[in-house]
């Protein structure tokens, strides 16, 4: 049984629920024979991947849905074995560079050359090129991006790249110059609520009728316009409750609760003991694989919600931006998380 997020993922561009203008654009691009390289960017859960898979469908027809996952092995220069997953159909290939760490340049080049040298098997196919999807393209190392430059030009006869990413600021200009940029905005709360409503009907979820729109609206708001999050939330709430109503508690993610408790206690009182508490909490969050940047951001947002003085807010934001940069540059996340909170405490005392 698949999760609702996957079960109700639209398969074709026509079936996508919102952003009709993006669907139109992708369709127009896919119907011409000279499909460009794409850089698709937008916030998490906005539907980037869905639209790209639907575009593949538009390009090659239903045969692309026959996907398989291979585990590939790669021998690094230092003789270490590296394993990573490649999702593929006969028309496309999908990789996630973070699986490859610092070897992403070599691995990607190897894969691309392999694809470039094998001609499309199916000559009846409409397009001579294969599509290579790179997930989380913003996590590609500079080296790997640099290596893509000439490859994107040289193999443009048989390869099209689709880079998926949350931001464009980590992508080097020569790569942006070689791609058409497609922005996918988050769906509005109303659009999220409409989709939740549709899924509820299909799954015969029982919602107190008079409160229906409010309940769904609340969930949409709670997920911050992240459709994936909203659907996961809905499914989880339906599993725990027989009926949904305004009284049904909205499920909070554990780690968010932990951060909220921490900030609440910092807002109440600042002391060395608090800093010690914070260290424990940060370590725990990190050990549960919550990314340090997400922790920092969430702490910052919660603090901003709690403080009144505007000048203090400005200061907290500035500190967050400084330590956020240090998180990107440095190695040891805990230093910067603690440093941030310590500085904030000082600022609050003044």
């Amino acid at each position: 049984m698949s999760l609702w997020v996957d079960k109700y993922r639209p398969k074709s561009l026509e079936a996508t629920d919102y952003h009709p203008e993006i669907a139109d654009r992708l369709k127009a691009l896919a119907s011409s024979s000279d499909f460009p390289h794409l850089l698709v960017y937008g916030p998490p859960g906005a539907g980037k991947k869905t639209r790209i898979l639907a575009t593949l469908q538009q390009l090659y027809g239903p045969a692309v849905e026959k996907m398989k996952i291979d585990v590939r092995q790669f021998q690094t220069a230092s003789n270490r074995k590296l394993e990573f997953n490649v999702v593929s159909s006969s028309y496309h290939l999908e990789i996630t560079p973070s699986d490859m760490g610092n070897n992403d340049r070599v691995v990607i080049q190897d894969l691309l050359k392999e694809v470039a040298q094998t001609e499309q098997v199916d000559f009846s196919g409409k397009h001579r090129f294969k599509v290579v999807i790179i997930n989380e393209a913003d996590s590609l190392t500079r080296d790997a991006q640099a290596a893509l430059r000439r490859t994107m030009e040289k193999y443009s006869g048989n390869i099209r790249l689709v880079l998926l990413s949350n931001t464009t600021s980590n992508i080097i200009p020569p790569i942006k110059s070689r791609c058409l940029l497609v922005r996918v905005a988050a769906p509005s709360e109303a659009e999220v609520a409409t989709i939740l409503d549709k899924v509820c009907k299909k799954e015969s979820v029982s919602v107190v009728e008079t409160e229906r729109s409010q309940v769904l609206q609340l969930m949409a708001a709670h997920s911050g316009r992240n459709l994936r999050k909203a659907l996961l939330l809905l499914e989880a709430m339906v599993m725990q409750n027989d009926h949904l109503s305004l009284k049904t508690p909205v499920i909070q993610l554990d780690w968010e609760g932990v951060i909220r408790d921490l900030t609440a206690s910092v807002l109440k009182e600042r002391s060395v003991a608090k800093l010690q508490l914070a260290r424990t909490v940060f370590y725990e969050l990190l050990s549960h694989c919550i990314p340090a940047k997400v922790i920092l951001k969430t702490v910052c947002w919660e603090l901003l919600r709690g403080v009144q003085r505007d000048s203090l807010k400005v200061e907290i934001i500035e500190l967050a931006s400084v330590f956020d940069e240090r998180l990107s540059l440095g190695q040891k996340a805990i230093f910067h998380l603690e440093g941030f909170l310590a500085k904030v405490m000082v600022a609050m005392e003044q």
Binding site: N166, T167, S169, N170, K293, L296, K297, C300, I317, A320, S321, D324, E325, L327, S328, L329
Partner: peptide
């Protein structure tokens, strides 16, 4: 360009 978070920045 150091890779910091867009929203925060």
């Amino acid at each position: 360009s150091a890779g910091a978070d867009e929203h925060v920045q």
